[in-house]
Design a protein around this nucleic acid. Structure first.
Length: 417
RNA sequence: GUGACCGUAGCUCAGGUGGUUAGAGCACCGGGCUGUGGCCCCGGGGAUCGUGGGUUCAAAUCCCACCGGUCACCCCA
């Protein structure tokens, strides 16, 4: 038997209803917040991700689905959405349409990782980005939007952690100080942190190793290095969050796995999710558009992991569509007589189903029951000869006779909402 | 990439120390009710026991490899 490949999952009936529900919910929030939808290719040139995410990040070094196509060009299945959105914004000149550009996208991402709870190789993200705004109010709006969506999906007890990574003006000094600090206790650090000390010192800060973490209590703090603008920016973001009543937790150790972030960075974590507890994350990336050959416009955005959102969401009990009417036709003449009616009711927008298999009435009523039909219309030889049909209310079991001539009208009146 | 545990009908699981036709519940189909669903009773279909190799007279059961799953490391949404 041919099976789906590792880390790639079918989303089956019963699950899809939940996906559609949450996607619609998110889409409504996005649109209400003034975002417009953009749909992007899942394949891009490898160079796009190498340049945007960062050559030395784990994602680029060992987690991408990269291959040569038939013309020997290196392509990569997108591991995240921001790079592609930036590319599209630049390529299509979207930034020229208005000062502020707000975009969202929903779709699959791909990372070659070992699957576990809340982590698949093909996973799905809800993504929002704002281009052209440098003010802290936009950072706050992005965070508030992410929280609204998660809360709208019934997610409880979420924890918002926030930090500022500084900017190109002040971060290098912090980076140097941190690197010096890390090199000072080189022998005591775990293997990974020794490597990070060389290539990407900030990443050492969120090492899970307890020994390392204990040592980092003495590490230099980013906030001592913020320039005046970064400090002001951060405080104003926090202030907006407070104004709307969002509680947060400052986390000076919070860094990001992608190089392009500056200033505001945040994660939204959920309890009981195990090791992969970050449901959403995002931040500001002011230099990215320019680095990709576009205009020097600031950007800020976030991503929500759909699979993880599903794990923490509290969904309505019954999401499957209940049908309005099941038609039980007994015998081929009855089926043919009733087919046009079914067709018309369906065209009028009603949920109507019928059985073409010629099964017993008992079997058909059972099927109607399973489909949670409000009514079942029974038409057999008896009914045809008397020019009528039986309409059974599946809740009460009450049946009434309806003349065939007026069937469409009376059914539509009864069933429309 | 590393480690631990796991893999038996569509689903959830049972099958002491190897031993005859691999079972159950749910789901599905049919009958009881020759044209009336949900409850009940009866019957039926459905399993290359993850795959491949090995040990053995004999393997779902023991061994090895691979594949897949779960959780953790790592990483991150």
């Amino acid at each position: 038997m041919i099976k789906a490949i590792r880390g790639f999952k079918d989303i089956l009936p019963g699950e899809t209803e939940k996906w559609v529900y949450l996607e619609n919910l998110a889409r409504k929030f996005f649109l209400n917040y003034g975002f417009r939808e953009i749909r992007l290719p899942v394949l891009e040139k490898t160079e796009l991700f190498a340049r945007s995410i960062g050559e030395t990040t784990d994602i680029v070094e060992k987690e991408m689905y990269t291959f040569l196509d038939r013309s020997q060009e290196s392509l990569t299945l997108r591991p995240e959405a921001t790079a592609g959105i930036c590319r599209a914004v630049i390529e299509n000149g979207l930034y020229a349409q208005a000062k502020i550009l707000k975009l969202f996208t929903i779709g699959p991402m791909f990372r070659y990782e070992r699957p576990q709870k809340g982590r698949l190789r093909q996973f799905h993200q809800l993504n929002a980005e704002v281009f052209g705004s440098q003010v802290p109010g936009t950072d706050a709006e992005i965070i508030i939007l992410a929280c609204d969506i998660l809360e709208g999906g019934g997610a409880k007890k979420l924890k918002l952690e926030i930090n500022s990574l500084g900017c190109p003006k002040c971060r290098p000094a912090f980076r140097d100080a941190l690197q010096k600090f890390l090199k000072g206790l080189k022998d005591k650090l775990c293997e990974d942190c020794r490597r990070r000390a060389e290539k990407n010192p900030l990443r050492a800060l969120d090492c899970k190793n307890e020994t390392c973490q204990a040592l980092y209590n003495e590490a230099p703090l980013i906030e001592d290095f913020w320039c005046e603008e970064c400090r002001e920016h951060f405080l104003r973001v926090l202030n907006d969050l407070e104004i709307v009543g969002l509680s947060y937790q400052k986390n000076p150790r919070l860094v990001r796995g992608l190089d392009y972030y500056v200033r505001t960075t945040f994660e939204i974590k959920a309890p009981n999710l195990g090791a992969q507890d970050t449901v959403a994350a995002g931040g500001r990336y002011d230099g990215l558009l320019k680095a990709l050959g576009g205009p020097d416009l600031p950007g800020v955005g976030f991503a929500i992991g759909m699979e993880r959102f599903l794990l923490v969401a509290d969904l309505p009990e019954e999401l499957a569509i209940k049908i309005d009417l099941f038609v039980a036709a007994l015998g081929e003449p009855a089926r043919q007589r009733i087919l046009p009616l079914v067709h018309n009711l369906r065209k009028l927008g009603l949920a109507v189903d019928l059985d073409h298999e010629g099964r017993s009435l008992k079997a058909q009523l059972k099927q109607a029951n399973r489909l949670k039909a409000r009514y079942t219309l029974i038409v057999g030889e008896n009914e045809l000869s008397e020019n009528k049909a039986l309409l059974r209310d599946m809740e009460s079991g009450v049946q009434e006779e309806i003349p065939l001539q007026s069937l469409e009208d009376s059914l539509f009146k009864r069933l429309k909402r």
